[in-house]
C-alpha cells in the first residue's frame, strides 16, 4: 500500500529575524503513521514542528518562505484560518500543561471553544478522549478535581486527551515524554502506537531509542537542514549520510 501524503513541505525556509533556523526543508509526511524528528538540540526539529500548526506565528520576528501544504492546501496562504488549522493539527507540549481547571473542563475546553455546548455531547467527547488517551480508568472518579493534582504522566495523558477532544487529524508531539518518568513514558509510547490507527502522529524526540521503537519514518535534522528522511528501520540500520551515522552511533550530539 503506497503512503498517502498528508503534509508536504517544499523548499521551506524559516527565519528568526536575520537568523535562519530552517533551510530548504522538503519532505512528505504520510498519513496514519508515526513520523519522528531527531537531531541535536538547536537543529530545527522543534521549529519545523511548530511551523506545521503555525505556533511560530506567535513570534513577531518569525518569517516563513517556501511552501507547506496540508491535504494539498498551503498552510501559509493568505486567508487561512489558523484556528481551524490548529483544530485539525493538534499539539502536545514538552512539559505537561493542563489548565488550572478540572480534568473535565480541560478536556471539554477545545470542543466548547469550537461551539459544542450540549452537556450530553460533551460528556461523550470527554469520555471518548480520556479512553483514547488511556487515562479514563485512572481519572473517571475525579473528573471534577483539578488537573494539577494529577501526577506528571497523568497530566500529560490528560493533555493528549485534551488535544484529541477536538478530533484532529494530525497530532504533533514536541518531546512529549522528555519530562516524564520511564513508566509514564512507556505508557505514552504504547498509547502512540494505538493512536496511529486513527491519527497521523509527528513527534520530536531527543531520544533515539524512542524514535527507533515507535516511529515508522524518521527524519534527521542538523543545523536547520533535513539531512536524511526515510523509513525508521533503514535510517537506523544503514544511514546514507555520514552525519546521520555519526549521530546515531553517538559520535556527536
Amino acid at each position: 500500500m503506497p503512503d498517502k501524503t498528508i503534509l508536504s513541505a517544499k523548499d521551506l525556509d524559516f527565519f528568526y529575524g536575520p537568523a535562519q533556523a530552517l533551510r530548504h526543508i522538503t519532505a512528505n509526511i504520510p498519513a496514519n503513521q508515526v513520523t519522528a524528528f531527531i537531531g541535536p538540540s538547536g537543529c530545527g526539529k522543534s521549529t519545523f514542528l511548530r511551523t506545521i500548526n503555525r505556533m511560530n506565528d506567535l513570534i513577531p520576528i518569525a518569517r516563513v518562505t517556501g511552501s507547506l501544504t496540508f491535504h494539498g492546501r498551503d498552510i501559509y496562504a493568505p486567508g487561512v484560518d489558523v484556528t481551524a488549522l490548529r483544530r485539525q493539527i493538534g499539539m502536545v507540549f514538552q512539559k505537561p500543561n493542563p489548565f488550572p481547571m478540572s480534568v473535565y473542563d480541560n478536556v471539554a475546553y477545545g470542543p466548547r471553544t469550537h461551539g459544542t455546548c450540549d452537556r450530553a455531547k460533551l460528556d461523550a467527547i470527554v469520555e471518548d478522549s480520556l479512553r483514547a488517551a488511556a487515562i479514563w480508568d485512572e481519572v473517571k472518579d475525579r473528573l471534577k478535581k483539578s488537573a494539577l493534582s494529577l501526577s506528571g504522566g497523568q497530566q500529560q495523558r490528560v493533555c493528549i486527551a485534551r488535544a484529541l477532544a477536538v478530533r484532529p487529524e494530525v497530532l504533533l508531539m514536541d518531546e512529549a515524554t522528555s519530562a516524564l518518568d520511564p513508566i509514564s513514558t512507556a505508557k505514552i509510547e504504547d498509547l502512540i502506537l494505538e493512536l496511529r490507527e486513527r491519527f497521523t502522529i509527528i513527534m520530536v524526540t531527543h531520544n533515539m531509542q524512542q524514535a527507533a521503537r515507535i516511529s515508522d519514518k524518521t527524519a534527521f535534522f542538523l543545523m536547520g537542514e533535513l539531512i536524511e528522511y526515510t523509513a525508521t528501520e533503514r535510517l537506523f540500520s544503514m544511514p546514507r549520510d555520514k552525519r546521520t551515522e555519526d549521530y546515531i552511533t553517538g559520535r556527536f550530539g
Partner: peptide, 12 residues
C-alpha cells in the same frame, strides 16, 4: 478535505 475557514460567523 481540509476545512480551513472560519468555523462560524458567530464566533468571528
Amino acid at each position: 478535505m481540509a476545512r480551513m475557514r472560519w468555523p462560524s460567523p458567530r464566533r468571528g
